[in-house]
Write a protein that binds this DNA or RNA. Structure first.
Lengths: 286, 286
DNA sequence: CTAATAGTGTCTGTTAGACACTATCTA
DNA sequence: TAGATAGTGTCTAACAGACACTATTAG
């Protein structure tokens, strides 16, 4: 392991002479799509920015990655700050946004993580010091037109307590061999999302809706043991419409193990199940 | 648009006083999974590192993102350097790797892009100044065991001219609601991949194999007009095994438009088709 | 004619959507 | 008993895998 480079340096000598301070470097942040299901609706946490830039806009919670901090550690830190829970919250990487002009402060490259937690794990996420407010927004996406040229959809974010309504037009169109997506604020609403956050929200919605059917991702929104009806309620909140109970039960059972236990809300007792990720299609799929 | 923050600053005043030079910043790079199909095999371009760190290891081609350069622009720049073509090469973002110790030089956060190009577009990719060699490696992945606990697979990278063989063991196992993946160099081979590049290679293989069946991604490996047999050859190279011709033709035609033209290699003339991305399942899927 | 490539037809088991039905518990 | 929740059974159309078959061209 004492290989030498063309300048005759060992690795240690090379590293000692390595200096990248002559270059200006981007800043790196993590942002967080934090989803939960509450009252049969898919919800997203947004914080209202207290300072420039994008002052008073609603933004994804997030922050800078410390130089000596793993990206996942930064996500966990942000999650704990927002949800006040230290237990493991599920998240996975969604996308990295790095357009050079996406933030007026400096070059900021942000990696967005999609995280989910059961409603009961959230202790009233409250505004942090960099936010003047925080709220859970109901998320939905509806196709308004679709043909061989492309598809147009509407992504809406609603917060009832504060009466906030945001509406973005998403256009997917054929570009050679792939689909290009653009998004634009639709009406002169009373609020808007900061920076390019609508892109992340739209990607997250698409991904969650797609994976809800083929992977066990929705179990991150449920307690470890749950009834078939609870699973179906979460599924319907994600996809945005009702689905057939018989068919849903027939199919979801392939991913479940009965616990033998039961629980009752009203009427008949309901059997409790546990999710086994290896039984799901996760292995075959992505 | 002259909103004022709590310090009484306008956006302009805020930006003038903004200074993040007191923090040490990570470096940001893009790396590239460049795939093509040649002689019925899925190939990946790797370059052999000329300098520390990971000297003499095989690595994904890539480089630093300039401070004033969009990430996609950096990818295009790297692609042109490697393939010597300026025409549009397809690519999409795969994943961002940012563990704090992944590179001994400094904190380096790299975003990996998956790109594909038809074989005829490659002008003999040659080693750049930071590489002492470059080669196209045949990629394959085989499951060696699978049960309710997890799955073990082997990813192999082979280069015949130089007689290079690399073999990595990939282990997927159930962790709560999701699947954790680990990878390890399997045998004491004559070569290995730099840094954490095997993770990116494995993710890329999984993603391409999965998407080959449900999206039109493989058309990025083909000329604009092609025969059904050419499409099937590329498909089989990606998934790594033969498939039924009748069934494949029946299904792939849903994404295609006949051009009316024909072409002949030997035997019967073959009809030429063109891919229409909107006919594919891309819209419904991810 | 044969060899080589291109392309079709059909059977069958599995799956997905639609929908009508039964079961258990409380008040 | 009614009302609420839990859970089942069945029909059918669409789809996917297996596989046998026909078509066109060169020499």
């Amino acid at each position: 392991m004492t290989a030498i480079n063309e300048k005759g340096q060992t690795l240690e000598e090379f590293l000692a002479s390595y200096d990248d301070s002559i270059y200006r470097h981007p800043s790196n942040t993590v942002d967080m799509i934090l989803m939960t299901v509450s009252e049969g609706k898919l919800k997203l946490l947004l914080v209202k920015r207290r300072d420039h830039p994008f002052i008073h806009d609603w933004a994804l919670p997030g922050g800078f990655i410390n130089f000596n901090e793993d990206m996942e550690a930064a996500v966990r830190r942000e999650l704990e700050e927002e949800t006040h829970i230290t237990s493991d919250t599920y998240f996975h990487q969604l996308y990295t946004f790095g357009n050079k002009d996406r933030d007026p402060r400096t070059r900021i490259i942000t990696t967005v993580y999609l995280s989910m937690t059961p409603e009961e794990n959230i202790r009233n996420a409250k505004a942090q010091d960099d936010a003047e407010d925080a709220g859970w927004f109901t998320l939905s996406k509806n196709t308004i037109s679709s043909d061989n040229e492309g598809r147009r959809s509407l992504v809406t974010l609603d917060e009832d307590e504060r009466g906030i309504h945001m509406e973005y037009l998403i256009e997917d169109s054929a570009m050679g061999n792939y689909i290009a997506t653009t998004s634009s604020l639709r009406d002169t609403s009373n609020a808007k999302l900061a920076a390019d956050h609508i892109k992340a929200v739209n990607m997250a919605l698409d991904q969650v809706q797609h994976r809800a059917a083929s992977t066990g991702i929705l179990f991150n929104l449920l307690p470890k043991e749950c009834t078939l009806r609870e699973i179906q309620n979460v599924y319907e909140a994600i996809i945005g419409h009702k689905t057939d109970t018989g068919n849903f039960r027939r199919d979801i059972k392939k991913m479940l193990v009965p616990t033998g236990k039961t629980r009752k809300i009203a009427g008949k007792q309901a059997a409790l199940y546990r999710f086994n990720p290896m039984y799901s299609y996760l292995m075959e799929n992505l």
